[in-house]
Computed example of a mutant assay.
Amino acid sequence: MRWHLLAVGQRLPDWAEAAYQDYAKRFPPEARVQLRTVKAEPRSGGKSAAAIMAAEAQRLQAAAPKGARWVVLDERGQRCTTVELAERLQQWQRDGIDVAFVIGGADGLDPSLRAAAFATLRLSDLTLPHALARVLLIEQLYRAWSILQGHPYHRD
């Protein structure tokens, strides 16, 4: 089983890229998170938010690993603690199916992607900038992995 992070937006601010890479490199080779980014749809030309989300959804679907369970991140998603996330990851690992965590663009995710998702999670009750969401997700995946490994990074 592999973990993937699919995200709209290819360029992060330097601080976010550095933070993301810091956590990503902590995983051992057999547990690396595979990052796949897709281009954000240009907001020019009077496009509606729905048209923008639909275009980004097509790019995300094309970038997604075949057969992976989609876990979309959405402020309306289900809350879970880090320990609960670790338990979910462990169960998904037992199932042997890749998991793709999906972060949408500035307008969010197309409703069809949210409807087709295996799970919908929220990282916070607050609306987060996408760069921060990406950093927070990789940190939480690392923290959950450390719990499953008995690593002392996470403390209760």
Rank of each mutant, 00 (worst) to 15 (best):
H4F: 11
L5M: 10
A7R: 07
V8L: 00
G9F: 05
L12F: 08
P13D: 14
P13I: 13
W15I: 07
A16G: 10
A19M: 11
A19F: 09
Q21T: 15
A24V: 10
A24T: 12
R26P: 00
R26L: 12
F27E: 04
P29K: 15
P29V: 03
E30G: 10
A31I: 01
A31L: 07
R32E: 13
Q34A: 14
Q34G: 03
L35K: 11
A40N: 07
A40L: 10
M53I: 00
M53K: 13
Q61K: 14
K66F: 03
A68F: 02
R69V: 00
W70G: 01
V71E: 00
L73K: 07
E75C: 08
R79Y: 04
R79C: 15
T82H: 03
V83Y: 04
E87S: 13
Q91N: 09
Q93C: 09
D95K: 13
I97Q: 12
V99F: 07
A100Y: 08
F101Q: 00
V102C: 05
V102Y: 03
G105N: 05
A106Q: 08
L109E: 01
D110N: 11
D110A: 13
S112T: 02
S112I: 00
L113M: 13
A115D: 09
T120G: 07
L121S: 11
L123M: 11
D125G: 15
H130M: 02
A133E: 08
R134E: 06
V135Y: 01
L136I: 15
L137T: 06
L137M: 10
I138A: 02
W145M: 01
Q149R: 15
P152Q: 11
H154I: 06
D156C: 12
